[in-house]
Simulated assay, not measured.
Amino acid sequence: MDDSIGIKIKKLRKERKLTLKQVSDKTNLSISFLSQVERLKSSITLESLKKVSEALDVNPSFFFSNPVKKTKSTIVRNALSDLNNRPNSFIYKDLGGNLENPLFSPLLVMLKPGDNRGSSYSHKGQEFLYVLEGTLTVLIDEEEHDLHPFDCIYLDSTTPHNWINHTDSDVKFLCISSLPI
């Protein structure tokens, strides 16, 4: 994952006037681990990032966006172009641009063969998944659903869920999630 995530976590935590202990209590992640992430000494899993984002009251996509001037509209061209060149196995690309006060977060996600985003978890909001390439397995409350290209699913994110690639090919899909209000 991106090294700037730790820097963004620390900045946001300080803006919210929270201590590492307070974030640790809200996330059940150790203070030392959180400190190492903030100091770029350790990387964070998507599952842990989700816990931190809920504790800091932001969508996880916040940590993948570029802090530039907010706009009224954004065009993202050739969003797939650099997806295959990244070293991480689980890849996010924020498609939201920099709209001010967005109501939802669009992400392009790529899972390499055998990847998943950790154990199932739940969070506030809703998700819409649309498969572009490959076969995505969505686990919802221990029930698996295979989605093929051009299939989609809309789910209540408060239900425990996970994304899995059981195949030997890349899976690319859109994930559009509502932001906490």
Rank of each mutant, 00 (worst) to 15 (best):
T45E: 12
T45F: 02
L49N: 07
K51L: 10
E54L: 09
A55T: 15
L56F: 10
L56Y: 12
L56T: 11
V58K: 13
N59L: 04
P60C: 02
P60N: 01
S61H: 03
F62K: 11
F62Q: 11
F64G: 00
F64E: 00
F64V: 00
V68H: 09
K69E: 14
K72L: 11
V76R: 07
V76I: 15
R77Q: 15
R77H: 08
R77V: 07
N78V: 04
S81Y: 07
S81C: 05
S81P: 01
D82K: 14
L83A: 09
L83D: 08
N84T: 11
N84M: 11
N84R: 06
N85F: 12
R86E: 14
P87N: 15
P87H: 12
P87C: 04
S89P: 00
F90R: 14
I91D: 00
I91A: 01
D94W: 09
D94R: 00
L95Y: 06
G96F: 01
G96P: 01
G97Q: 05
E100L: 14
N101Y: 12
N101A: 14
P102T: 14
L103C: 12
L103S: 15
S105A: 10
S105H: 02
L107Y: 01
L108I: 03
M110L: 09
G118K: 09
S119D: 15
Y121W: 11
Y121G: 13
S122L: 07
K124Y: 08
G125F: 09
Q126Y: 04
E127P: 03
F128E: 10
F128S: 10
V131T: 13
E133W: 01
G134P: 11
T135D: 13
T135M: 08
T135V: 15
V138L: 10
I140T: 12
D146T: 06
F150V: 12
D151K: 08
C152R: 09
C152Q: 13
I153A: 15
I153Y: 10
Y154N: 15
L155P: 05
L155Q: 09
D156I: 01
D156P: 02
S157W: 04
T159H: 04
T159D: 05
H161E: 10
N162A: 13
